[in-house]
Simulated scan of single mutants.
Amino acid sequence: MEKGCPFGTHRVIEPVGMLPQAAKKIDNTMQIRSNELLIDVQTLNIDSASFTQIKKACEKDISKMEKMILDIVNERGKMQNPVTGSGGMLIGTIKEIGPDFPDKSLKIGDKIATLVSLSLTPLKIEKIKKVNINNDQVDIDGQAILFESGLYAVLPNDIPEKLALAALDVAGAPAQVAKLVKPGNTVCIIGGGGKSGVLCSYEAMKQAGKDGKVIVVEYSEENAKRIKDMNLAHHVIVADATKPVEVYEKVKEVTDGEFCDITINNVNIESTEMSSILITKDEGIVYFFSMATSFTKAALGAEGVGKDITMMVGNGYTKGHADLTLQIIRESEDIRNLFEKLYV
């Protein structure tokens, strides 16, 4: 059995020399190399920005969405939305383990969640069984390949599989909040009512402590009420994050003009960069977790308003992110109940 590149470059078809994530097309032949895993896939969790784009393009028509997803995978060998560039993740059962795969503790039959993007994961879909239009999940019959360098988590026994999948899909966000937020900080979560936003709000409240302040900006009245009812913020602002001056004025009011030490952007639509930038103090931090973020808009926008801030691109991985996120589900009965209602 031949050994492949740890990063999967042996599967890149076009353009040659790229890594799988940046490639337009990869080889999704489900015959593993000696350092790969073969997974029987149960459910895809499509990235929120990607799923929103697909839903909008197909006018929420399930049959059109199914065709669009199949066309993307058949054309590219992976689930990478050509508009957003993003993917998602999956859960499935290990079917075959290459003899050179580094983790010798894994067993055939183990259920895992991949923690690397579908935008680089070789995937073959035999059948789409169900598109869950309200939670970004797609049940399929199919298979996928995980490279030697690919991250994954064995699914825990005490959390339902689809709940774990939903939480792990955004595990990088609350884990980065845990690293960034210090006691006494003023933190704003833009898009705090969604899946990643709820987890980030919980972790921000925990890390900022009794002397800190957590603000959530949310477009949806329903999501805003949910945050209030769950006591996940000190202030909840209903506002449109694509209108930066509106957000600026409302955050200015609740912070007495002091603004925020750290802003976390979880919004799954475009053009929310300037709201994040305007409400952040000089020498503060903006963490863009959203895959809808434009580097150009953020960089030139901050320069244009004279903001000396640190802007971080949302890396979906940070050490310990899976364990931290699953621990939130265990700690918070409210979040667990909410996620079970939405995703299980």
Results as ranks from 00 to 15, higher is better:
Glu258Arg: 09
Ile285Pro: 02
Gly301Cys: 00
Lys307Glu: 14
Leu324Arg: 04
Lys297Pro: 03
Lys250Trp: 04
His234Met: 05
Val313Arg: 06
Glu273Leu: 04
Ile277Val: 15
Ile262Tyr: 08
Ile237His: 12
Ala241Leu: 06
Thr242Lys: 08
Met291Ala: 14
Ala299Thr: 15
Glu270His: 10
Lys225Ile: 06
Asp323Arg: 02
Asn223Gln: 14
Ile264Lys: 04
Leu324Tyr: 10
Asn223Lys: 14
Glu249His: 05
Val254Ile: 12
Ile264Gln: 10
Val313Asp: 07
Val247Pro: 01
Thr263His: 08
Lys297Cys: 08
Lys243Ala: 11
Ile277Thr: 07
Val305Gln: 05
Ala292Asp: 08
Tyr287Gly: 00
Lys307His: 09
Thr280Pro: 00
Ile262Thr: 14
Lys243Gly: 13
Tyr248Gln: 07
Gly284Cys: 02
Ile227Ser: 12
Gly301Trp: 06
Ala292Thr: 07
Ile262Gln: 04
Lys252Leu: 09
Ala233Lys: 00
Phe288Ser: 01
Ile227Arg: 10
Lys319Ser: 13
Ala322Gln: 02
Asp240Tyr: 02
Asn315Arg: 13
Glu283Cys: 02
Thr293Gly: 03
Asp323Lys: 10
Met274Lys: 02
Val254Phe: 04
His321Ser: 13
Thr310Lys: 09
Gly257Ser: 07
Lys225Phe: 05
Glu246Trp: 00
Asn268Asp: 14
Glu249Gln: 09
Tyr317Gly: 03
Ala302Asn: 09
Asn265Ala: 11
Phe295Ile: 15
Lys297Trp: 04
Ile277Trp: 04
Asn268Gly: 07
Ser294Val: 03
Leu324Phe: 07
Leu324Lys: 08
Ile269Ala: 11
Ala299Met: 13
Ile264Met: 14
Ile264Asp: 09
Glu249Thr: 01
Ile277Gln: 03
Ala298Lys: 01
Gly304Ser: 12
Ile279Ala: 05
Ile237Pro: 12
Ala239Asn: 13
Glu258Leu: 08
Thr242His: 04
Gly284Pro: 00
Met274Leu: 15
